[in-house]
Amino acid sequence: MAVRVQTADFDCSAEIAALRLSNPKIGAVVTFLGTVRDMNDGLAVSEMALEHYPGMTEKALADIVAQAKTRWDIIDALVVHRVGPLMPQEQIVLVAVAAAHRGEAFCACEFIIDYLKMEAPFWKKEQTPEGARWVDARVSDDDALQKWKGNQ
């Protein structure tokens, strides 16, 4: 179980290889990759800056991964989240979950990204033609979390 917060880009293939080759009992790896869109809420986005709360971020991510490990029979998980300035189409976040079988890995991966979006202290600021603006939290993200809370 590993979490990393970094400004540098990451290599998905290398990350997945390192995760799955660590244990021969792994039979499934599910990944989620989040990337920067060039449009949000009707405005073009030319750049996005990600701020976080050093220390708390790593704790929050480790706690979310630990919760996933408690709920599903997974073997390993990885979260890599970038901070700092990012351009459209750049990679933001990778969640990778390894398990013996796909079902547990799919559920745990979706759980981790849903919780990350609601509980990990990251904030996005976009550059648009109308100036810079902080991204608003989405109600749909909260709905996604309620799904897991009602399904303990």
Partner: peptide, 26 residues
């Protein structure tokens, strides 16, 4: 102490309190 808190969370000497908007990572 670098964990989500609410209004009733108790604080102690040399503790760390943080204030921020709803998070928007991922």
């Amino acid at each position: 102490a670098q964990q989500m808190a609410d209004e009733s969370t108790p604080i102690a000497e040399a503790g760390e309190v943080a204030f921020f908007p709803p998070v928007t990572g991922g």
